[in-house]
């Protein structure tokens, strides 16, 4: 019995040493990938009757260490799309087309009502509430698509 106990203890000791690589602990770091450009609250207002234009809005966050240059390529189900900025100056409202947006490293940017927005022209199909529409940007020159949720204004 004593002999059996000694043999078992020996094997347990050998197995433990082997497992711990003779006391050296292995640390495995899990890599969590974060998108350089994060988009939230991405929404497109369903065009209203009588109007061929509508707008899309979203919050954008640059998670990277470099500035991001963003240009708009196209929006699914619309004939054309442009980045615009609404301006109110001296009591007058105007809009101007913007070619690109630059988001500084670790900073945020918002397409929001009354400010920058994505203007959409001539829907090519009937758009339904909660439909997901692909919006394609060029992020530092590389094409990237994001889902925008179609919403009714009412």
């Amino acid at each position: 019995m004593k002999y059996l106990f000694a043999v078992l203890s020996f094997f347990i000791l050998v197995a433990s040493l082997a497992n711990s690589s003779f006391g050296e602990q292995k640390i495995v770091l899990k890599q969590v990938s974060v998108d350089p450009l994060e988009i939230s609250e991405a929404r497109i207002f369903i065009p209203l009757k009588g109007s061929s234009a509508t707008a899309a809005y979203a919050k954008l966050k640059n998670n990277s260490d470099q500035d991001i240059t963003l240009t708009l390529v196209n929006v699914e189900s619309f004939s054309a799309s442009e980045i615009h900025e609404s301006l109110v100056r001296d009591g007058k409202m105007s809009m101007k087309k913007v070619d690109k947006i630059i988001i500084a490293a670790h900073k945020s940017f918002e397409f929001s009502p009354g400010g920058h927005h994505i203007m959409l022209f001539d829907a090519t199909q009937n758009i339904l509430a909660n439909q997901k529409l692909k919006v394609q940007f060029k992020v530092n020159g590389k094409a990237q698509s994001f889902d925008f949720n179609a919403l009714s204004r009412f």
Binding site: F45, S51, A55, H84, V88, P113, H117
Partner: peptide
């Protein structure tokens, strides 16, 4: 005053 193709300020004002 405004216009119906205005996608931003006008619909926001009407809302």
């Amino acid at each position: 005053i405004g216009y119906v193709k205005c996608p931003d300020i006008c619909p926001m004002t009407l809302s």
